[in-house]
Design a protein around this nucleic acid. Structure first.
Length: 265
DNA sequence: GGTCCAAGACCGTCGGATAG
DNA sequence: CTATCCGACGGTCTTGGACC
């Protein structure tokens, strides 16, 4: 069995490479999520191993899930500053295993997942009148399909899944293009511009707005309250915040975001 | 402290180049 | 032809200094 992996903790990475190797599993650590995609594209691995390392894990999962479409198993190994199994699974991990004294729990998970047909864990998002279908890379509004390119859909996914919250430009780049890639800021702006045009195209009124947050990133806002969903309440008026923090949400993710599961699309 | 202004940084948009 | 990337340009916003 061949794996590629992303780790923050290098000592932990070395221990895993050694322990897995003794059980006939080859783990190749990668420098970035972009390198992981490249290796998978060349058929050099059957699964991806990620270290549960706080916000890095969420970025890795978002990027890999969007680009792999659930075809390749993504297993998460518990680590320092872990976000935990529930959050990892909610963000698209195929499975989760702790690695404390023994590599056996991880091996068991690997044997159960690698080489078996994958069930897509999370297939869609519903934000206000918009529904995002990850399998089809499409966005629907009021039964009207908005056709997006792969990059545009990846960008939309990250923004919609963080509706009402500011996503930094660096985080957007990491999630859409993968960490380690050197993407010009103009490229991100160009894709945001195209996405804005497509989301508003044909609609009688614009319901969402991709708001630039000066020198920080972007935030997707829902503009009109409708039955069944509500605008986010940031708690503190933006004008009460210091300049650099205006637009940053102060509370939990908004309630109008709902993940869609197979059969709901 | 409040206001004005200039400089620099940033953003939105258009259009061209390149690769598949 | 389409998707992606980047340069150019004009408009907007932020910041810091000068002045009252």
């Amino acid at each position: 069995m061949k794996l590629v992996g992303l780790f923050i903790n290098k000592a932990r990475q070395a221990a895993l490479v050694r322990d897995l190797s003794s059980h006939g599993v080859e783990l190749r650590p990668m420098p970035s999520s972009a390198a992981v995609l490249h290796a998978l594209k060349r058929g050099e691995a059957q699964a991806v191993l990620l270290e549960d390392a706080d916000t890095s894990l969420i970025d890795w999962l978002a990027m890999l899930q969007l680009r792999l479409g659930g075809i390749v198993p993504i297993l998460v190994v518990g680590g320092d500053n872990a976000v935990g199994m529930v959050d990892a699974m909610a963000h698209g991990a195929t499975d989760y295993a702790d690695y404390v004294d023994s590599v056996e729990p991880l091996l068991t998970r690997l044997r159960a997942r690698v080489g078996r047909p994958q069930q897509l864990r999370r297939m869609g998002l519903e934000v206000g009148p918009y529904a995002l279908d990850a399998a089809a890379s499409a966005v629907r509004r009021d039964d009207r399909e908005i056709s997006l390119t792969a990059r545009e859909f990846a960008l939309a996914w990250v923004l919609f899944s963080n509706a009402g919250r500011v996503v930094s430009a660096s985080s957007l780049t990491a999630r859409v293009w993968g960490g380690g890639t050197d993407i010009c800021k103009r490229t991100l702006e160009q894709h945001v511009y195209r996405l804005r045009r497509k989301l508003s195209c044909g609609a009688t009124e614009s319901v969402v707005r991709i708001q630039a947050v000066y020198s920080i990133g972007y935030r997707l806002d829902l503009l009109h309250e409708q039955p069944g969903w509500a605008a986010p309440d940031y708690g503190i008026a933006a004008t009460e915040l210091p300049l650099h923090a205006r637009g940053l949400p102060q509370e939990q993710p908004p309630g109008y975001l709902r993940h869609l599961w197979p059969g709901e699309l």
